[in-house]
Computed example of a mutant assay.
Amino acid sequence: MGKFSFEDKLNAVFDYLEGKKFYRDIGKRIGTDHKSIVKWVALYEIHGSAGLNLGYTNYSGQFKIAVLNYMKETGTPY
């Protein structure tokens, strides 16, 4: 499964919502699992088109260690 552009996701969502195709058909057409289409549709219904731009945050190793040290020092649960 690869990364998809905002436009790819939005087109897939509209194809489903307009009743043109089923989840599996859309997934096959763009080269992803139908579960991704289900997730995109749900995100769109909850957050609108902005939901399709939600991404992952990458933190540096140094930042992660600092957070763990802080948690250890303050007794914050992991």
Rank of each mutant, 00 (worst) to 15 (best):
M1P: 14
G2A: 12
G2P: 09
G2W: 04
F4T: 04
S5Y: 15
F6V: 11
E7Y: 13
D8E: 10
D8R: 07
D8A: 05
K9T: 01
K9V: 04
K9W: 08
K9F: 06
L10S: 06
N11C: 03
A12Q: 02
V13I: 01
V13E: 00
D15T: 05
Y16A: 11
Y16K: 15
L17K: 05
L17Q: 05
G19S: 03
K20V: 11
K20D: 14
K21N: 12
F22A: 12
F22M: 13
Y23A: 02
Y23H: 02
Y23N: 03
R24C: 11
I26T: 04
G27C: 08
G27E: 03
G27F: 04
K28T: 07
K28Q: 10
K28P: 12
R29A: 14
I30D: 05
I30H: 04
I30Q: 03
G31P: 00
G31F: 02
T32D: 02
T32Y: 07
T32C: 09
T32R: 05
D33P: 12
D33K: 08
D33Y: 14
H34S: 10
H34E: 11
H34V: 06
K35V: 15
S36I: 08
S36G: 09
I37T: 01
I37W: 00
V38L: 10
V41M: 04
A42P: 01
Y44F: 10
E45D: 09
E45C: 09
E45A: 07
I46E: 13
I46D: 12
G48D: 03
G48K: 02
A50T: 02
A50N: 06
L52P: 00
N53L: 11
N53Q: 11
N53F: 08
L54D: 10
G55Y: 00
N58A: 12
N58I: 15
Y59A: 11
Y59V: 13
S60E: 00
S60Y: 07
G61F: 11
F63A: 15
K64I: 07
K64P: 08
I65S: 15
A66H: 08
A66S: 12
L68G: 13
Y70C: 15
Y70P: 05
Y70F: 12
M71V: 10
M71N: 08
M71F: 14
M71K: 07
K72W: 09
E73K: 00
E73F: 03
T74C: 05
G75T: 06
P77N: 04
P77V: 01
P77Y: 00
Y78I: 08
Y78D: 14
